[in-house]
Write a protein that binds this DNA or RNA. Sequence first.
RNA 1: GUCCCUGUCGUCCAACGGUCAGGAUGACACGCUUUCAACGUGUAGACGAGGGUUCGACUCCCUCCAGGGACACCA
Length: 501
Amino acid sequence: MTVRTRIAPSPTGDPHVGTAYVALFNYCFAKTHGGQFILRIEDTDQARSTRESEGAILAALRWVGLEWDEGPDVGGPHGPYRQSERSALYREHADILLGKGHAFRCFCTAERLTEVRKAQMAAKQTPRYDGHCLSLSADESARRAAAGETHVVRMKVPDGGTCVVHDRLRDPIHIDYSQVDMQVLLKSDGLPTYHLANVVDDHHMGITHVMRGEEWISSAPKHLLLYGYFGWQAPELCHLPLLRNPDKSKLSKRKNPTSILYYQRMGFLPEALLNYLGRMAWSMPDESEKFGLDQMMAHFDVDRISLGGPVFDVDKLTWLNGRYIREDLDDAQFIERIVRWQLNREALAPLVPLVRPRISTWSDLVDVAGFFLQGMPPITADDLAHKKLEPQEVQRVLQWTQWQLEALPAWDAAAIEATLRATAGVLELKLRDSLAPLFVAISGKKSSTPLFDTIGLLGRDLSLARLRHGLEVLGGVSKKQQGRWQKAYRAALAAQAEAGG
RNA sequence: GUCCCUGUCGUCCAACGGUCAGGAUGACACGCUUUCAACGUGUAGACGAGGGUUCGACUCCCUCCAGGGACACCA
């Protein structure tokens, strides 16, 4: 049997370092067993998936040095490798389950489900589907579906008993079926949920080993159940510990830069980033810290994966990156790399219209545009002081803007402008005043290139990191204060939504 | 709240019944250096707690505690 593993990212945002981390282990496992590594796009969430995101993810994985044997761009014998192009297959398989009595149609409204959930929460029970449509006769179910009544397909779950999940790295995990929800498999839009699509595809693509984040352990019984229902052999499971923020919570863009694009932009070398990810939860037998993909593969052993959730430590990554710059690049390569980084036509082109009006000599360039190349601008609390705003008001502007930008679906100057204007309105500040602290936090100076374009060019994670940095420079925001602001922020959002219809 | 996972220096990893618990990073100190880095040397710093099992437990078992994850027509 050929070992086949996969990475199955969902194209709903910037390429995540966690994706590269999981991909790396899948890659190493497959390759060290003479197998194949597949890339599949899980874009069944129509509302959030975009082609831009998909392209960025593929490019980012290639950038760190991972290549796949089969995927949406390179093809392969088990395609298509994009779930949105496989919907017929899922419907077919939902029908099989329906036919075998392992699944049922559910006509419940969203309102009813929320109500049930609310009641269960109030009664301190685990929120679960209550089985309302389970009792529908096959005839009635089929008739209502044929009549075009909107419905979903849910999987059935055994009344009693326990599911034993075998994980490559852990003792057998026992989960009672009473804990497993009757998961929706086919949404009312006819597209599958993760659980169905994942199982169907892993089977049809011949995936033998599923290495994925630990967050999936609790839904493993659903997947195992599905394999059983279809009469398929389940792949071996291996749940990797989750990358963490410094506060130990699951790595999130809310608290940390998580986008590979950010690390790219900050000037990390792809080989250093990949090396660092290989040090997360794993070590070389001789404990060496600096190693390339080839060396990692030469010594790879799944059983050397440790299970404590590793904190993604940018400081240590930075140290490692420094070693690569010092030890692995000769002068020519050094130059080539910085050119490839930001000192090239493609990266410079968008700066021209912003910079040209503001310089008289080339030597003005560093002053005007140097911050584009910078990490965190060297600012102090004094720099952020504003004659019309109290220090706390400044913090509030930074904090709100951070929240707004991190939730912004699209990332372009127009959307950013609209958001920042809205923020000023809600905070009842003149745009000019509310923008002042942002100029400083983003560019390091009171005035700079136009803010909206600048933020757009800097990218989401780098902009957010600078806002966070600004807040830190001001001494940080207390949990209590943050809570209060968050409440007001949510309320403002709700009001805005209502006003906007 | 329910279920599940995890628990070694602040952080990342070693040691898988017998070591003064090791390395790296970060911190600090000293050296080198015009400065800063880099580099070199050194210092502080951990087995979550309590019970067992054993001649002997970081390592095995139990209880507790702590952290994390999951509980969607998102993945």
